[in-house]
Design a protein around this nucleic acid. Structure first.
Length: 899
RNA sequence: GCCGAUGUGGCGAAAUGGCAGACGCAACGGACUUAAAAUCCGUUGGGCUUAAAAGGCCCGUGCCGGUUCGAGUCCGGCCAUCGGCACCA
């Protein structure tokens, strides 16, 4: 492609200003205690989800969120905030390791190169990061503290009395290893043979690994777990106070999956034909506990089902049923999760030969084994109520088990109520007959409690977090093994640095690659090191805390730094940073939880004290249940232990929408529709790139890329340039003579103040697309003006600066400052200048527009009414029909209802 | 199956219950130019009326209904697309 003439010299301007910002450290946010720290300034913490620095470099999706946060960061600085806007690298993970396996190049080297590439790309876009705060999760100075936090988790337990994590030394029981928040357990895990590692539930999608899409099998293995389930309740409850989209909160709520119900104990009926060696054991284990959200249907429980892996199966199966049950168990264990899901429609199962006693009917009911009951949820056993559960009904019909209706649905006969799963009235249930479902539940649970055969209970879908991986490129555990016991290392022994390996390949067995480094593994004569490593998510669980104080060598984050940056918004301080003018009545638009309000100046703040934390966090929705849940969990543990001042890390969270290719399809190599930011910047400049990303549409919406669109925005910036600059005879740019110290005309004043208002409001609500539209209107209004008043240009440049920082910095300098644009104050608008003296009033008859009339804004309702009735067009339309009603909306319209 | 989000011109989109389509793209016409690009100015939802223009009339925000003087916006019911969950008892 031949070199296109640049519409304005962005190729000169942009590197120039990026260099100046770098050298002057223009965007460094001082911490409390630093010499240039200003305690009078309120803080604002605006955070991006830091990237995994892949070899492919940035794609256009990354800078979408990054641009949004950068605009807010620059805007808040104008507004007088001390703005924390950092960037770093989430660099542990599979791709660097897979590359190491292929090439033998150490992942640290790959990571270093990729980070350098990402960083230079980000700098080319002109983001105002405080690069002095850069962190890298693979840096020993960073993961030392990741390991340190692990030690805190390991050395804590969740005290159900206080509902908080406490040091494990406060635990009164015998074996603290049973209650630690980090523990080792032999559990069925997701094993991925191709990746040679286990994966968390969250990393398995449709029975395949999220990374690579390889099949995953269930396999019992001894692994490190984190007791996130202890926090299930708080992780749900604390969502209420957060300014997140309701749909995102719902995603987390569903993932945690809270269900209220009851646990009910069923006695196993004594059976005579049990083998002798099992009869004794049965005495000691006489009950099967189930969980049900519908204890009110207990009378309809006509059978029970145990999960195939349930430990009681061994004890209760009769001798004659044993071969069949064993065969069934083997069949299911061979099934992958995928198969188990795919075949879900077709129920399978076998009878154990044993019976249980229904505690309310005292009837003997058969006990089955079936894989539609999962070991991991509830107790791994259920009562089968075919009358009012779809799955149980299907199962009962297939195996001819009795079906009894015990809930009568509205407008249904008892017979018709079979298969009805909603609330209704209890029937065929002597203790609760006639009661509506909620009361029936309450009463039956009360009865169960009194009789010692059940109690209310809450269950969660959330499982404990499988925290170990059989890989190389991750944080080693600060743990050693001795005599089959795990033991945490002392804090003074951190960081635990992984050994360098010749061969990074997973062993294909449960033994991690680190085990190959025999020297390293040998900790002492008696003890060996843990060879598993932590999962990729570990580093990202707390990076936002490290940003507050990234170079602290004595603490994961300094106390004063943490308290300053993670504090709740101090409204008094925020008020002092607000402009003095620009009063307007708040709309309170888009308040997600009903408590947030819009202040007179348009700054959103909460009526009740905020829980604090990061003030604005922007990132992809793909982290809705992984990173965001894990980080909240770690944060709460550290909060409980007294290390943090807020219970939640991220107060306001926005998910940017996915950017599609020009063909409206997801960008992918195979489709060949990937847009490379470098190419766009080379052709149109970083400012055009930034503005286009924001002009495309609402931030949270999915939207397709368009090169034509970039061109349009680039034209807009060129018009801004030519508003103040013109080309002379030699083809050099020089200041336009139209730019003068001059008074604004009335209409210029109006559009200027309308633009201040609109841009200010829109940045507050992250509606950058309409902010740009308004600035286009402004530029259109001044294009071809014979006199371009300097003051208007100064104001406008500040408004545009957060979006297009380079061109505005250059123009600011060219029109003679004063100072640098970044040192300016955000402009305020004057409502009086916005007010029109005259407005066009819409005249309607029966809701249809029939004419217009221009009236003073001071016109009374009577005057408006009279003007409407005298309008010839209205008279004509009415044609003498009787007027029944006249609706007058001041400054807007008159609607005459007639006929 | 359950839950959620979204449906507006040729395209991206905008619109505190008050003139639907701001702003931009594309298209078309004009100015400038030897010419083109760039730039600037203008037109641009659909249909009918008209020789033409001006003007006028009708229809139009996925579909059906409701509330209202007035609905893209609020309410009820559907449909479609996208996303999440998916035997969770």
């Amino acid at each position: 492609m031949s070199e296109r003439r640049k519409p304005y010299p962005f190729d000169f301007i942009e590197p120039k200003w990026q260099k100046i910002w770098d050298e002057k450290r223009s965007f460094h946010a001082p911490n409390p205690g630093e010499s240039n720290f200003d305690a009078a300034k309120p803080k604002f913490y605006v955070l991006d989800m830091f990237p995994y620095p892949s070899g492919a470099g940035l794609h256009v999706g990354h800078p979408e969120g990054y641009t949004a946060t950068d605009i807010v960061a620059r805007y808040k600085r104008f507004r007088g905030f001390n703005v924390l806007h950092p960037m770093g690298w989430d660099a542990f993970g599979l791709p660097a390791e897979q590359y190491a396996i292929k090439t033998g190049q150490h992942p640290a080297l790959t990571t270093r190169d990729n980070v350098a590439k990402f960083k230079s790309q980000l700098k080319r876009i002109g983001f105002s990061y405080d690069w002095r705060r850069e962190v890298n999760t693979t840096d020993p100075r960073y993961y030392k503290w990741t390991q340190w936090i692990f030690l805190k988790i390991y050395n804590s337990w969740f005290n159900p009395e206080t509902g908080k994590a406490e040091p494990v030394t406060t635990y009164q029981g015998e074996d603290p290893d049973r209650v630690r928040l980090a523990y080792v357990a032999e559990v069925p895990v997701n094993w991925c043979p191709q990746l040679g590692t286990v994966l968390a539930n969250e990393e398995v999608v449709d029975g395949k690994s999220e990374v690579g899409g390889f099949p995953v099998e269930r396999k019992p293995m001894r692994q490190w777990m984190l007791r996130i389930t202890a926090y299930a309740e708080r992780l749900i409850k604390d969502l209420d106070g957060l300014e997140w989209s309701e749909s995102l909160k719902l995603l987390q709520r569903n993932w945690i999956g809270r269900s209220e119900g009851a646990e009910i104990d069923f006695k196993v009926a004594q059976v005579s034909n049990l083998p002798i060696e099992k009869q004794g054991k049965l005495e000691t284990c006489p009950t099967i506990r189930v969980f049900s959200t519908r204890p009110d249907t207990l009378y309809g429980a006509t059978y029970m089902v145990l999960a195939p892996e349930h430990s009681l199966v061994d004890l209760i199966v009769t001798e004659e049923q044993w071969p069949e049950v064993r065969a069934y168990r083997e069949r299911t264990s061979r099934k992958s999760d995928l198969e188990r899901t795919e075949l879900s429609k077709d129920k399978t199962g076998v009878f154990t030969g044993a019976y249980a006693i229904n505690p309310v009917t005292n009837q003997k009911i058969p006990i089955w084994v079936a894989d539609y009951v999962l070991l991991g949820y509830g107790t791994g056993a259920i009562m089968g109520v075919p009358g009012h559960d779809e799955r149980d009904l299907e199962f009962a019909r297939k195996f001819n088990l009795p079906i009894i209706p015990v809930v009568q649905g509205p407008y249904l006969t008892p017979e018709q109520s079979i298969g009805y799963v909603g609330d209704g009235t209890a029937i065929n249930s002597p203790i609760i007959d006639g009661l509506p479902t909620p009361e029936a539940k309450r009463k039956i649970v009360e009865w169960l409690s009194q009789n010692g055969v059940g109690q209310p209970n809450i269950n969660y879908k959330l499982r404990d977090w499988l925290f170990s991986r059989q890989r190389y490129w991750g944080e080693p555990f600060p743990v050693v093994w001795q005599d089959g016991q795990h033991r945490a290392l002392d804090e003074t022994e951190l960081p635990v640095v992984p050994p360098s390996l010749e061969d990074y390949k997973p062993t294909g067995t449960a033994e991690p690659p680190l085990a190959k480094a025999k020297e390293w593994v040998r900790y002492s004569n008696k003890a060996t090191r843990e060879t598993n490593v932590m999962p990729q998510w570990a580093g990202s669980c707390w990076y936002y805390l490290r940003f507050c104080d990234p170079h602290n060598e004595n603490r994961f984050v300094g106390e004063t730094a943490e308290q300053y940056w993670m504090a709740g918004t101090n409204d008094e301080n925020a008020a002092s940073a607000r402009p003095t003018a620009g009063r307007r009545i708040a709309k309170g638009k888009k308040a997600p939880n009903g408590t947030a309000e819009t202040s007179p100046s348009g700054i959103r703040h909460s009526a009740s004290p905020k829980s604090g934390g990061v003030d604005l966090y922007v990132g992809g929705v793909e982290h809705a249940v992984l990173h965001l849940l894990y980080a909240r969990f770690w944060h709460k543990v550290l909060f409980d232990l007294g290390y943090l001042s807020t219970p939640e890390p991220f107060q306001r969270l926005i998910n940017q929408g996915v950017i599609l290719g020009e063909d409206n399809q997801k960008m992918s190599k195979s489709r060949g529709n990937i847009v490379n930011p470098d190419d766009v910047i080379a052709e149109y400049g970083a400012d055009a790139f930034r503005c286009y990303e924001m002009f495309m549409g609402p931030l949270e919406q999915m939207k397709p890329w368009s090169m034509r669109g970039v061109e349009g925005v680039s034209r807009f910036l060129a018009r801004v340039w030519r508003l103040m600059m013109r080309e002379n005879q030699e083809g050099k740019w020089e200041l336009s003579p139209a730019v003068q110290d001059a008074e604004l005309t009335r209409s210029q004043q109006k559009v200027l103040h309308a633009t201040i208002k609109k841009v200010t409001d829109d940045i507050e609500t992250l509606s950058f697309n309409t902010a740009i539209s308004q600035m286009m209107i402004f530029v259109n209004a001044f294009t071809n003006a014979e006199v371009v008043p300097l003051t208007a240009m100064r104001t406008f440049l500040v408004l545009l600066n957060p979006l297009a920082p380079h061109i505005t910095s250059e123009l600011w300098q060219l029109i003679g400052g004063p100072g640098e644009i970044t040192e300016q104050k955000w402009p305020s608008y004057d409502e009086d200048l916005l007010a029109e003296e005259e407005v066009e009033i819409v005249l309607q008859v029966n809701g249809k527009v029939k004419g217009h009339v221009t009236m003073s804004t001071k016109a009374t309702e009577n005057e408006l009414e009279t003007a409407a009735m005298e309008h010839p067009k209205i008279k004509e339309t009415l044609g003498g029909k009787p007027v029944r009603k006249i609706v007058v909306v001041p400054k807007k319209l008159v609607n005459i209802v007639a006929g």
